[in-house]
Design a protein around this nucleic acid. Structure first.
Lengths: 252, 252
DNA sequence: GGCGCTCCAAATGCATGCAGTTTGATGTCC
DNA sequence: GGACATCAAACTGCATGCATTTGGAGCGCC
């Protein structure tokens, strides 16, 4: 399956696609945090296009689950629930097991070199920001998916991986990417060796550990609550009284 | 996992969404065959909306893989390659195994009754057209996915199942739905019994046999007038601007 | 201070208009 | 007859304009 006619599925150079890519990257790098407003006007102005185009782009991103769109409301960056995050990881595990099953023992030397080069890049980026590390780690998985030459698989893996990125920014503590990198190397080695069962197990464990490390279950109602989020800002309140819950709770 | 807060992911009542649903159904029922042209003008006229809306709907369907969109070209119903068909089935098998794994032993009596009722409906529809049989069979799987209460899973299963529908119309000969119905009943029984391994095996075999039965020689397609084809689907669109069939010039 | 009300700037939902590209039908030449 | 140049109709890409809806500032009342 590793030698298959390559099919062009990637986005063309529409203005819509360009904006989609830009927004997608901004979201997964957490430049745009979950809940951030995305007014059509502002996007259009920022990217030098009309509202029509910005609107269309938002529609696409909503289809990917990165943006939430409610009628007559300003679009916002999606804020997946903890349960949705788990669901996304569950799906991702199955799909990525499929990927490595298809690839085991079928990679060319050039492809293995490409994978190693990517992990090297991840290594070099360890000193940088978490956002970049996470993005590179995610792109490693997408690179793997590409090697199956299955456009559908690429699309689903990309989408679900981006969603996982999004949830990491919500529910994860500072990212320790070191072991992830080692696990990536182990996966490449097992792929090269052609041990399908082994590499499926490795991938499963890899994603499962990322998920478990990341998705520290918030206590159902209090974790990552608005009050916690606003705690650092409480200092700015001149009054010594606690800010009323009712005033905050209706933030859309 | 079977008892989880239900989350509203389904499409709202935008005009865009309405048109998406209509077109999606027309495609999976093979009223619109793969390769059929979908000019924005004609769609807008047929559904009583502007080109802007029709265009947006086409964009969504393209994101789902049901429509192919090339710059400056008329949109067409997607014509998946044989390989893409296999890929779609591979992915579907993994995802649906995940579904039944989550559901095994966790269904309520009401849910089991609902599933049985659906299969009864499939049974009754055996006398009807293949298109309806295939749609009902597909909807059985989507119904299962819904019971996981995982919106992401529902979306992916729906999408990939629709794509499979599409490929069935391309590569499959008249559908013998009898065994599929029996297999659906067996799956329900195993789910109720709570035997996860068994039901995963059943689902795997079920989808695999459908896929293998499907992969035969492609069938040539006959051109029909788009507006005629869409007539029954336009009725569901509530707009006084829907143009009467007789008043519309023919198009190719 | 808290709660409800009115009203308006801002944002969305959608249609329409114009410019540029593709299509394919026609005419011309070999 | 068939290959090729030509051109108008058809279609898409995109911006803009108007109607409708939202959300929140301001204000009076408890």
């Amino acid at each position: 399956m590793a030698a298959r006619a390559s099919s062009k599925t990637s986005e063309s150079s529409d203005k819509v696609s360009v904006i989609c890519r830009a927004l997608r990257r901004a979201i997964i790098e957490q430049a745009l945090e979950p809940g951030a407003k995305l007014p059509e006007d502002a996007l259009g102005e920022r990217f030098g296009v009309s509202r029509t185009i910005a609107r269309h782009a938002l529609g696409q991103l909503a289809a990917e689950g990165l943006v939430e769109l409610r009628r007559n409301r300003i679009a916002v960056v999606a804020t997946p629930s903890w349960q949705e995050a788990r669901d996304a990881f569950d799906i991702r595990i199955e799909l990525e097991r499929l990927v490595v099953r298809q690839l085991a023992g079928k990679l060319t030397k050039a492809q293995i070199a490409e994978l190693n080069a990517h992990v090297d890049a991840e290594d070099r980026a360890r000193g940088g920001t978490d956002a970049v590390s996470i993005r590179l780690a995610t792109e490693f998985h997408i690179l793997l998916a590409h090697m199956t030459n299955s456009p559908i698989l690429v699309r689903y893996i990309s989408e679900v991986a981006y969603r996982c990125c999004l949830t990491l920014s919500l529910y994860s503590r500072p990212h320790s990417s070191e072991c992830a990198i080692n696990e990536h190397r182990a996966i490449i080695a097992a792929l090269a060796k052609g041990d399908a069962a082994k590499v499926m197990e490795l991938m499963h464990h890899h994603l499962d550990s990322v998920a478990n490390r990341a998705l520290v279950a918030p206590t159902p109602q209090r974790g990552r609550d608005l009050l916690d989020i606003l705690a650092p800002y409480a200092d700015e309140v001149t009054s010594d009284r606690v800010v009323k819950l009712s005033k905050i709770a209706r933030r859309g």
